[in-house]
Design a protein around this nucleic acid. Sequence first.
DNA 1: CTACGTTCAGAAAACCTTTTCGGTGAGTTT
DNA 2: AAACTCACCGAAAAGGTTTTCTGAACGTAG
Lengths: 340, 340
Amino acid sequence: MARSEPGRAVTLTDVARLAGVSVATASKALNGRDQVKDSTRQRVVEAAERLSFTPNPLARGLLAGRTGTVGLLTSDLEGRFVIPILMGAEDAFGAGQVNVFLCDARGDTIREQYHLRALLSRRVDGLIVVGRQTDPRPSLGHAIPVPVVYAYAPSDDPSDLSITPDNVSAGRLAVEHLVACGRTRIAHITGERAYAAARDRADGVQAALHAAGLELVGDMMYSEWSERWGRDAAAVLLARHPEIDAVLCGSDQISRGALDTARDLGRTVPDDVAVMGFDNWEVLTTNARPELTSIDANLQQLGRTAAQRVFAALDGVDIGSGTEYVAGRLVIRGSTVARR
Amino acid sequence: MARSEPGRAVTLTDVARLAGVSVATASKALNGRDQVKDSTRQRVVEAAERLSFTPNPLARGLLAGRTGTVGLLTSDLEGRFVIPILMGAEDAFGAGQVNVFLCDARGDTIREQYHLRALLSRRVDGLIVVGRQTDPRPSLGHAIPVPVVYAYAPSDDPSDLSITPDNVSAGRLAVEHLVACGRTRIAHITGERAYAAARDRADGVQAALHAAGLELVGDMMYSEWSERWGRDAAAVLLARHPEIDAVLCGSDQISRGALDTARDLGRTVPDDVAVMGFDNWEVLTTNARPELTSIDANLQQLGRTAAQRVFAALDGVDIGSGTEYVAGRLVIRGSTVARR
DNA sequence: CTACGTTCAGAAAACCTTTTCGGTGAGTTT
DNA sequence: AAACTCACCGAAAAGGTTTTCTGAACGTAG
């Protein structure tokens, strides 16, 4: 780092000259090829270190056809989903052979096409497409010369590979937890019916209730993903069905609203009524009183898996197609289990 | 897009052949160089379009020494700051000549060094370093052969260029708003004293109070950036100083806590007491009851500026050094001004 | 008709690395 | 001593683009 003159980057030629060999030999020595005597290799390695040589990935990529880069194309305005997915991908790509181009399409198809072209012209080796809903999104098609994996939002084309949270099992998981806590009169408040996430979780809830021999208390309440709706719906529910002992909410935001209403009505959480949500959005869950139990979607895991699939496809493995589901994880906090 | 055989990308040679010229002429024609007859240029352009040719940026970069990429090195785990900054940077880099490598160091110096090396070996043209606090962070040093701009968290080396929110003026802005709303008995609850953001905002608050001929009610309350602290501090404050007519909070999280306490104590917001915060984190502000007035840090603007500075440096302009401040923006909602 | 200038096209070098293939020298076998 | 194998190294091509320089064709002026 000390001697980095901005003038010119140090090239393999410099290393070769210092080591007194040809560039061919230097290349082979540094890349662990055989056909190089050990003593020679040593000389080259030392020279490379003394000059702190790093190979130019452009030249390398030009030849190999591989650039060691992956495009992450997101429409997730807030970065709530894409950041954990990016972190998972970074983990999977591991020891830094791969870097990620992040492009934000901001939910705009034109911009998405535009970024797509830019990424392809940069010869990314693969593509991860992140949506902000779990509803299927339009496929980018099959004219793309690199492997594509859809993360969070699956593709509407079953011949693409998609990886998405398993919201049905998440719904089941939530109910099973409530039942395990001894709750039997469970209501469900969730977000927009237009969202697959809301419907899938509700399906899982119904299935688990049925399996436990229980019935949902009140109607399945769809409306919007907001605290306001959580407050209003909880007020209606608790007035109409005072026997309720658990309110399962479709998101942490809704949970926060339900918690507020419970407090306003003088119902204690969790003793009197339990509350839990989905997403495990920490700024909401850990700041609530009491702290909110939630189902974490394991997005980092999802990102890791997506990256692994891209990797596998690059190595020529057939990664198949269809939608792969990532299970959620129960995070228990004080809103369902009283603190000791 | 129709005819993209994965087999081999279309190269300038193909275009030249189709147009019946040499690669040199084709290159000149497509890049708007003179020394090409108009009719020839036309033929080449048509050929390029028919083959949907896109130049290989690796080859181009290999020669030019420019890659058209910028590294965004962040330690912002949640992406709360980096996403708007990324969006601003994308705006500034504009018509897609530039793409962004996003690397998440996760607050780990080792990982940061590691990513830094990777980015440099990829020959990024510039670097934007994003921190998660406004406190000065260690400089990356001057051995870096590309322009570096520090965003959000400034560098501790004044010879670097940093762009950071102007928290002092944000604090002033907040108090001026409260005073304009007729509030005169203002208290301030904020986060950890170790954070420059907390201290700077507090300084601005004091300055504006002084300018308005007012005194802070109660002590300057530093502790932590959480709703819990907001609740507890507000309870203490309102008990000790019931005359308070405005609680200015150091973050939206703290505001949420203060709102809750006000509600618990039966104080109405905003009629009886106004509450406002900083950051304008929408999931917190727009879901509160009433919705929270806040100071937005204009992070997207900050990202745009950072990108423009990198750009300018690339064009050989001296971008100077020191810290540049981006003003915040008042977002008025129902917690300070009663809804009509 | 010669000298010169202008306009445009192409050949070739350059960027940096990897890989193939040919070659050198030493050692081994017959 | 000749033929052969083996280990090792280097020359050169390849990858796609840009730029410089040379050169050809043509027109114009003397």
